[in-house]
Amino acid sequence: MQAEALHYWIMVLDVESFSPRKNPVQRAVRRAMYEVVEESLSRAGIAGQDVVMEDRGDGILILVPSTIPPVLLAGDFIRELHDNLRERAVLTSTAAAMRFRVALHQGLASRDEHGWSGDAINTTFRLVDAKPLRDVLTAAHHAHLVFSVSSDVYRDVVQHGYRPLDPAAYLPVRFEAKHGQPIEAWVTVPGYSAPPGLPPLEVAARPVPTGTSSPAAQASTAQAPATGTISITGNTVQGDVVAGDKTVYVDGAYPGLR
C-alpha cells in the first residue's frame, strides 16, 4: 500500500437525482455510468495510464497521475463524456436518463487499505456537491453535464486557452463549504455560451485571474452578435476558433440571450 501522498489530478463525477430512483433503475444507471466514463476515458486517450477509479455509489472518484496532461481531462475527456451522454439520451428511457455534475481539482492524495484520502479530495467533493453547480444543471435544461474546476485549475490550465479549452465559456462562483470554508470555482456547461442559473450579482462581483476578461465582459461578449469569421446557423456556431463547430443552447441566463 502507498503510504506517502502523491500529486494527482482529482476528478469527481456525480449522477443528478440518483437517490429518488427505484433500486432496479439505480442499478441500470450505475452500469451505464461506468460504461460512459470508461468509454470516454478510452476515447480521450487516458485509459490504461494508472488511472484510479473508486466507487462512490451515485458517482466515481477518479485519480489521474500528474504526468497526464490536464487538458486531456478538462478538454478531451469532458467533450467525450458530453457526446457520449448525448448519444445515450436518445436511446435511454426517461427513468434511466443520466446527467452528470463533474468537478476537477489537483493536489495530494494518499492510499491506505481502505481507500483514498486527502484534503484535495475533500475539496473536489465539495465542488461537485456545491449548490451553485446543482442550480446550474437544473437551469441548463438541454445540458447533459455541468463541469466545475477549482480556481487553481482555472488559473493554471483553463485560462491559457489550450485547445480545445474555451475560457470564455466559464464563469466564476463562490460558496461556503462545511465549517464556513470559502471556495472559489469556475463553471461551464458544454453547448452553452455561458452557464445559466448563476446569480447575476454574484457573477459580476467575482474577482478574475490576471490576463482574463471580467465576467461582465464575458457576458457582454456572449450577448453580442457573431462577427468576423464566426457564423450562426440555427443553433450551430460555425467557425469557433477554440473548439470548432458546436451546438449552443441558451435558456435565458442573461438578458438578451434568447
Results as ranks from 00 to 15, higher is better:
T67C: 14
G57Y: 05
M33S: 06
D55G: 04
R99K: 14
D58S: 04
R30E: 02
A47Q: 10
V149S: 01
D58A: 10
M53H: 05
E87Q: 15
Q106P: 01
H144A: 11
R134K: 15
G59W: 01
D152M: 11
G75V: 02
L63T: 06
A120H: 08
V153F: 00
I78G: 01
Y34T: 06
H141S: 15
A44D: 08
R56Q: 14
A96F: 00
R79K: 14
V146T: 15
T67E: 13
F125S: 06
L72C: 13
R99C: 03
L137F: 10
A96V: 04
M33P: 00
V102F: 05
R56L: 11
G75W: 02
A130G: 01
A109N: 07
L133W: 03
R56K: 14
P65S: 06
A95V: 01
V36S: 07
A47Y: 05
T138L: 13
R88W: 07
W116I: 08
H114T: 13
R86V: 15
E35K: 09
H142V: 04
A28I: 02
D58P: 03
L85H: 04
L63S: 11
D83E: 15
W116H: 14
T94V: 12
A140C: 07
E39C: 12
T124S: 12
A74V: 02
G59I: 02
V37S: 09
V90Y: 13
T123S: 12
R111D: 08
R43G: 03
G48N: 06
R88F: 03
L108Y: 05
Y34G: 05
D135M: 09
D50H: 15
L61C: 03
A143Q: 09
S117A: 11
L137V: 03
G115C: 11
T124Q: 05
A28W: 02
A44E: 03
V146F: 04
L127W: 07
D129P: 02
S40V: 03
A140W: 09
P69C: 07
L63Y: 09
A44R: 07
I68C: 12
Q26V: 00
D83L: 13
D152R: 11
A143K: 03
D119W: 08
L63N: 06
S93P: 11
L145G: 01
A44S: 12
E87M: 14
G107A: 00
V64M: 12
V146S: 13
V71E: 13
W116M: 13
R43Y: 10
A74Y: 06
I78M: 15
A95E: 14
V71L: 07
L85N: 04
Q26L: 07
G59S: 03
D112W: 12
A130W: 00
M33L: 09
D135E: 15
S66W: 09
